[in-house]
Write a protein that binds this DNA or RNA. Structure first.
Lengths: 117, 117
DNA sequence: CTGCATCCAATCGGATACTG
DNA sequence: CAGTATCCGATTGGATGCAG
C-alpha cells in the first residue's frame, strides 16, 4: 500500500485513512448511538455527557460532511434538529462493534476497576 | 457501559480504551508488520520511513510496556535489537485487519487518487 | 434548542543533536 | 545500530460567552 493524498492531506495506510473519518473521541460513540434510531442534538448531549457541545457539534458536522450522518432541521420554535445514520455510516457499525468487543477484552486483561457510584 | 479509570486516566467507553492501547499513528502499522516475523529496529525504520526514530522508539516502548510486543537485545557490536509480537499483540491483528479492509473500502468510496511516482 | 466564536491548556508529532 | 534529550509547531479538546 503506497502513500496517497486526499483533501490535501497525506496518508500512509488504509487504517490511517479510516481513522481520519471515524476516529477521534466522539465520532464512534455518536455513530454507535445513531445505529438504531434518530437522535436530537440535546439527546446526544445528554447521553455523551462528557462531550462539550462544541466538540459534539464539530464531530457531527464532520460526520455530515463526510456522508456518515444526515441532518434534518425542523423550522420550529424552539428549533429541532435530528441526526440519522446513512448507509455509509451503517457500514462503520460492524467495525465499531469489533473495536468495542476488543476493548472489552482488553479491559478484562488489564483488570480495570470501575469507580464506585 | 459506565466510565472507568485506568492508570489515573478516565475513559468513557471500551473503544476509547482500546485506542489508547493500539491507537496513534504508528502502533497498528508496527503490530501489522510484526504479525509474521521478528523485526529489527532499523528494519522497521526503513519500512515506516515517514516515522521519525523518536516516534518509532516511543511507540515500540509503549507496546512493550503494555505487553503487545517483546524486545530482545543482543549484546553485540554493533548492537542488535529484535521486536516480536506477543499473544496479546496477536489478538489485535484481526481488529487491525478489519480496520484495514474498512479503510480500503472507504478509499474506494471516496475515490482517492494515488500520486504519481 | 442548537450551535458558533473565542480563548486556552494539554497532547501529539516532527527536527535536530547527541550517546552507549 | 539503537536509541534518548531537547525544543518547537500543529492538532485536539475544554470553558465560556453569545446568537439565530
Amino acid at each position: 500500500m503506497p502513500d496517497f493524498v486526499k483533501d490535501n492531506h497525506l496518508f500512509h495506510n488504509p487504517v490511517e485513512f479510516a481513522m481520519s473519518k471515524i476516529g477521534g473521541t466522539y465520532k464512534m460513540p455518536i455513530l454507535w448511538r445513531l445505529k438504531d434510531k434518530k437522535w436530537r442534538f440535546s439527546e446526544l448531549q445528554k447521553s455523551l455527557s462528557h462531550a462539550s457541545d462544541r466538540m459534539l457539534s464539530k464531530a457531527l458536522k464532520e460526520l455530515v460532511e463526510d456522508g456518515f450522518v444526515t441532518k434534518e432541521i425542523f423550522p420550529e420554535v424552539p428549533p429541532r434538529v435530528e441526526y440519522t445514520i446513512t448507509d455509509r455510516g451503517q457500514k462503520a457499525i460492524p467495525v465499531i462493534e469489533m473495536l468495542r468487543n476488543y476493548g472489552l477484552d482488553l479491559l478484562q486483561e488489564f483488570e480495570v476497576e470501575h469507580p464506585k457510584r
